[in-house]
Design a protein around this nucleic acid. Structure first.
Length: 680
DNA sequence: CTAGGGTTAG
């Protein structure tokens, strides 16, 4: 019999299973004997068997046997089958089993409602609760927590009060777990007043439940943005645990109050891995990448073991500032401590290597990653895209579809970006169309921007403009900006002015609007107009965001802003810059003054250009690393035309590879050439 | 072993 082979598999799978072949044979014979008796001693033997299952296939074998042995209507075994299905994330099969069960009781319903909730099928979970009521099956204290969680997750406001009423009807509203779930639900539905009221009315609680309820409420205040109320509650708490402190730290982080978060974090006793991860990912999310890295190392120093999420957050900080050496160190830590290359860790590593300029290494880790999910594939596609490897990006995208992964809007954006960087107008358009036609994904504003970029870079400006006019959504600032850049690159002043007008209408306070406008005037030498724009900006108190660049030297990240004189080696940096500039000029480099915002004397313009942050980072890299070593620079804005040109000369003169990442993509400079083919 | 519940990272 199949059960025997299943049993032997089950026995190897778990040491807990100690059923013998004889008991299974007994199970079979006894179920035949008691076929219609309503009492099946064999149920007691099938239940541990279900628990021993390790695959859905094995569950199916048991389900089949239940039919053979007239046990298919045993609610005890079916309950077990359904919950095990939920554990395996095969809710479709769980639903099938449920449909073949004639007279479900509360146990069967509870396991199904719970499984559906835990696999995020919230509507379905609520739907089965309603079915339960309709069939007059009484819900109990274990039904409500999951239904309430489903309602909270859906933010289904309408159901909240109804369910609360139901708990009262069944006399369960005072049950401690039901009550905690109710408060949590009201918090998530943003009905803080109801939550507080329930909290106040809650009678005698044990200490643990009490702390939990306080934490839930504090979290609710944080979500609602009421940090003062959160603090008040926190201060009023009779007892606190690590979770209470973590909730506060998280609340401050989410509201962007990093300093407050840090104060709480530093003050809290007994930090656990969640405390550290919350703080690290918060710092990284808000742009304090170096601090995030420092904190990670401090965490290791204090002997706290990071988990997958800590690793992913820290790697993401490395990725943002191009800290390759730090990233490699973390990769080594990951390998040494036996982390599996699962979706979380694998994807973070792929992304880190791609964004730190090591696309081949990214591809290697991608191949080693055992659980490739949608995010892993998307990271790889976008990695190829930012490196300008459109062929690989398209191949990867197709391989992803072949692997049975449905691309989402992010994956489509990545592959479209690849097309736009390489001027692949035809494949780009066809992918854009297939998005709606084959995958029923409605393109969002970013996809439209990408298409404008695709036509625009390829010089098809009219096409780009008519595309904008035919869009079903209102073109925004970014879309007109893309058109504007294309116009500037292809010297279409008339259309550039049109785009620029729109930009100013849409975002009169956005510094970009002015920079764009000033750029066209500068391009055609209308300096009085450039000056006018500059004065308008100043009068309206609008400032251009500073451009900064990062370079990592010996594991230490150095950042520069334009005209920066703060670095300890400033003197040497400027001397080196002067030197490269002179040699480059001797080789034919002409400073491209179109990229300057102000009308200043030619010589001064050169100075302003000459101290752009990426040039400072370049000079620092040249003086502080061994000859021949590649330089990796990250810039937060797009690289300007003049710096791009200078980098080409510098790579030739210094005989070094320079890998510059700007906000859009990578530029690999080698022997006077750039991988973008000057098309960016 | 008729299942089994809640907050804080993502």
């Amino acid at each position: 019999m199949r059960a025997v082979s299943l049993l032997s598999e089950a026995k190897t799978a778990t040491a807990k299973t100690t059923i013998s072949r004889a008991t299974v044979l007994y199970a079979q014979s006894s179920s035949e004997t008691h076929a219609n008796g309503g009492f099946h001693p064999s149920e007691n033997l099938y239940i541990p068997l279900v628990h021993a299952c390790r695959t859905t296939q094995q569950l199916k074998q048991i389900h089949a046997q239940l039919f053979v042995h007239n046990l298919s209507q045993s609610s005890r075994v079916i309950t077990q089958l359904i919950s095990t299905c939920s554990m395996f994330k095969s809710m479709e099969y769980a639903l099938l089993i449920f449909r073949h069960f004639h007279d479900p009781n509360s146990f069967v319903f509870n396991s199904l409602i719970r499984g559906l909730c835990e696999s995020s099928q919230f509507e379905n979970s609520i739907g089965h609760f309603i079915l339960m009521l309709r069939l007059n099956v009484q819900p109990d204290r274990l039904t409500f927590p999951f239904v309430l969680k489903s309602v909270a997750s859906l933010v289904a406001d309408g159901f909240g009060g109804l369910l609360h009423a139901q708990t009262i009807k069944y006399g369960l509203d005072l049950d401690s777990f039901v009550r905690i779930s109710l408060v949590d639900m009201y918090v998530k539905l943003c009905s803080l007043d109801f939550a507080l009221q329930l909290f106040d009315e809650t009678p005698e609680r044990n200490k643990l439940e009490s702390i939990l309820l306080w934490n839930i409420l504090i979290n609710g205040c944080c979500r609602a943005g009421d940090l003062r109320k959160a603090r008040e509650l926190f201060d009023a708490m009779p007892d606190r645990n690590t979770g209470s402190w973590n909730t506060m730290v998280n609340g401050f982080v989410k509201q962007g109050e990093l300093e407050q978060a840090r104060t709480f974090f530093d003050r809290m006793p007994g930090k656990n891995v969640i405390s550290w991860t919350t703080m690290i990912s918060g710092l990284s999310e808000k742009g304090y990448h170096e601090q995030a890295l420092d904190l990670f190392y401090r965490m290791l120093g204090e002997g706290v073991r990071p988990n997958d999420l800590t690793i992913a957050s820290t790697l993401s900080a490395c990725a943002k500032i191009g800290a390759l050496e730090a990233g490699v160190r973390i990769h080594e830590y990951v390998s040494r401590h036996g982390f599996r290359l699962n979706q979380t860790v694998g994807t973070a590593l792929v992304d880190m290597y791609a964004k730190c300029g090591k696309i081949e290494r990214a591809s290697q880790v991608f191949n080693e990653t055992v659980e490739k999910g949608l995010l892993t594939w998307s990271a790889m596609v976008s990695g190829w895209a930012i490196h300008g490897c459109s062929k690989q990006a398209l191949q990867c995208f197709n391989a992803m579809k072949s692997a049975g992964i449905y691309p989402d809007e992010v994956a489509f954006l990545a592959v479209l970006t690849a097309c736009s960087h390489s001027g692949l107008v035809y494949p780009g358009r066809s992918i854009f169309n297939s998005m709606r036609d084959d995958y029923f994904i409605e393109p969002n504003v970013k996809h439209y921007t990408c298409m404008v970029d695709l036509y625009g870079r390829a010089g098809q400006l009219e096409e780009a403009l008519s595309f904008i006019r035919s869009m079903p959504i209102e073109p925004d600032f970014v879309i007109w900006g893309a058109l504007f850049c294309a116009c500037r690159a292809h010297k279409n002043i008339k259309m550039a002015e049109l785009a620029s007008e729109r930009l100013l209408q849409l975002e009169p306070r956005h510094p970009g609007s002015y920079v764009f406008l000033s750029n066209i005037y500068a391009g055609v030498g209308r300096w009085e107009d450039v000056e006018r724009v500059r004065i308008t900006m100043k009068n309206r108190g609008i400032e251009k965001p500073p451009g900064w660049s990062y370079i990592e030297v010996a594991g230490q990240v150095h950042s520069f802003v334009a005209g920066d004189k703060d670095h300890e080696c400033a003197g040497e940096i400027y001397a080196k810059l002067e030197e490269i500039s002179a040699s480059a000029r001797a080789q034919g480099y002409i400073p491209n003054t179109e990229s300057v915002l102000h009308n200043i004397e030619e010589e001064e313009k050169e100075d302003a250009l000459g101290s752009h942050s990426e040039k400072l980072a370049l000079a620092y890299g040249l003086i502080s690393t061994p000859l021949g070593m590649a330089l990796r620079i990250v810039k937060n804005l797009r690289v300007c035309g003049d710096c791009h040109s200078m980098m080409k000369y510098a790579s030739e003169l210094s005989q070094r590879e320079i890998i510059l990442r700007d906000i859009k993509r990578f530029h690999h400079f080698k022997e006077g050439m750039c991988s973008c083919g000057d098309y960016w």
